[in-house]
Design a protein around this nucleic acid. Sequence first.
DNA 1: TTGCCAATGTAAGCGGCACAAACATATGTA
DNA 2: TACATATGTTTGTGCCGCTTACATTGGCAA
Lengths: 204, 204
Amino acid sequence: MAGDKSLIKGKKKYHHGDLRGQLLEAVRHLVEKNGADGFSIAEACRLAGVSTAAPYKHFKDRSEILRDVVFLAMGRLRDGMQAAADAHPPGTVARIAALGQSYIDFARTEPELFRMMFSQTDGHRDDAELAETGDNTFGIVIGVVADHLGVAVEDEEAKLRAYALWCFVHGHSFLMLDDKLHGEKMIDEGQLLLAVGAGMLPQR
Amino acid sequence: MAGDKSLIKGKKKYHHGDLRGQLLEAVRHLVEKNGADGFSIAEACRLAGVSTAAPYKHFKDRSEILRDVVFLAMGRLRDGMQAAADAHPPGTVARIAALGQSYIDFARTEPELFRMMFSQTDGHRDDAELAETGDNTFGIVIGVVADHLGVAVEDEEAKLRAYALWCFVHGHSFLMLDDKLHGEKMIDEGQLLLAVGAGMLPQR
DNA sequence: TTGCCAATGTAAGCGGCACAAACATATGTA
DNA sequence: TACATATGTTTGTGCCGCTTACATTGGCAA
């Protein structure tokens, strides 16, 4: 019973236990550390303590590993946004702003992963599961915006405004990550979010 | 004189003539064809008809080649935006919208290159020339927005609105490339641009 | 318990790539 | 004409993605 599941140094077991999960975690960690291009499956294998061929028992190829890492991340983004929205009363502008802030915070906290989620130059553009998760997330935004407008979620203007909000928040996230303003503190993110959430830019 | 500079099949010259330019063009072509990850320097060498070691007489490493490709692209984006703005009278909302449309058109026309311009996970975030070109481009936007507001380009609100516009256009460009709306034709891009350019989203 | 099978690991090797010598050829200029 | 320099090739190294053949393990049926 002593040292049952613990991997005592040197006492490696042939079977890993949860290699799949460990690999996904290792890849996520490496992506965040070295960027989406600056890592290799081989390095993740070293982290997990297995041979470089082991991953191919769990994933078809490198692309599939990345897909799963992205899929997990998209789930976390969605859950975080849902929680952020739930922290404010329905119909309020604050609820809309909190949604956007949650999105931006994710980008700031896990920049390389966030970048990878939207840099899918691979074949994942047609992946049904990924698309569904993304749609669910956008659905949250539409719902919150529709609440604020007092219309049904099918309303075209709710969709339009939700999309415009998404564009704004998405664009700001990337420009921020790329430091396109070179650290200029010219914007009050929270205030701008409130204004955009309310449907207009600040007037003079 | 006959066949002076033309590369007659089999009659290869030892010196290439403009390998640097040809490589940049080859890389640009490959990036647009296969995506930012789906190409190799070696493949570009094959296109240019030289050995895989030749590029290192002109570029320090792969990263520097990509930097230059991106730099050229950023120049074209800037010039295109300037031309688009010049096609409309100063102060008009149409001028603002044309700027944004030019940006979006670039993204649509050269999607992979556009993506690469803003996926710099390499060390190019601190590159002075790149930053300057980007600043110049943003300067165009600020100027056009300031004109419309009737204020100086140093005005904080001009900057703020210009940035908000950039965020929106940038975000829409990426979401469009990633097909996040799955082809849903729910937005009238031109109209939305006009509204955002004027400083507010369409009211019911 | 025993015996076998499927799951899951390793070892070795292939081809491709980025990059580094060392060497070859062309070009411009004294 | 001679030489320095720029620009190309050949050859080689090490890493990586991925494959194939083989080893080990755990679970299940008899």
